[in-house]
Simulated scan of single mutants.
Amino acid sequence: MPTNRRQFLRGLLAASLIPVPTWADAGAPSYLSAAARPDGSYVLCGISYDLEVLFQIPLPDRGHAAAAHPTRPEAVAFARRPGTFAVVIDCLTGDRLAALTAPPGRHFYGHGAFSADGDWLFTTENDFEAGRGRVGVWNARAGYARVTEFDSGGIGPHDIKRLPGTDTLVVANGGIDTHPGSGRAKLNLPTMRPNLAYITNAEVQELASLHENLHKNSIRHLAISSSGRVAFGMQWQGAAPVSTLAGHHKRGEEMTLLECGTEAVEAMQGYIGSIAYSGDDRMIAVTSPRGGLVHLYDAKNGSLEEKIELNDASGISSREGGFIVTAGTGYIRCTNDLREKRSVLLNFKWDNHLVSI
Rank of each mutant, 00 (worst) to 15 (best):
L13T: 01
A185F: 00
A246F: 01
N139T: 02
Y198Q: 08
G105P: 14
D280G: 08
E52P: 06
A65G: 10
T123D: 00
G11W: 12
G153P: 00
A231E: 04
M268C: 10
Q235T: 11
E149H: 02
V147P: 12
K250E: 11
K307F: 01
P82M: 02
L346A: 10
R146C: 14
M192P: 08
R333G: 03
V265K: 13
S243K: 09
N201W: 00
G94F: 07
Y31M: 02
R62S: 14
I284A: 01
L92M: 07
L207W: 00
H158Q: 13
G252C: 06
A267W: 04
G27V: 01
L12Y: 00
E320V: 12
P104S: 07
I57W: 08
E254P: 13
L245F: 07
Q235Y: 05
R72A: 15
L97H: 06
V204D: 04
A327W: 00
K250Q: 11
D90N: 10
E206Q: 14
V294Q: 04
I219S: 07
F114N: 08
D127S: 00
S303M: 05
G315I: 09
D119I: 10
E254S: 11
A145C: 06
A86Q: 12
V43W: 02
V344I: 02
E253Q: 10
V135M: 02
S317T: 15
R141F: 09
K349D: 15
R134Q: 15
P19F: 02
D127K: 02
R282E: 15
A34L: 11
G40D: 14
L222G: 12
V265E: 12
H211E: 03
A67W: 08
T166R: 15
D39R: 10
V137S: 06
L54D: 14
S343Q: 13
F128Y: 10
P2V: 01
G112S: 12
T124K: 02
D95R: 03
R62G: 12
T71I: 07
P190F: 01
L245Y: 05
R80T: 15
V355F: 07
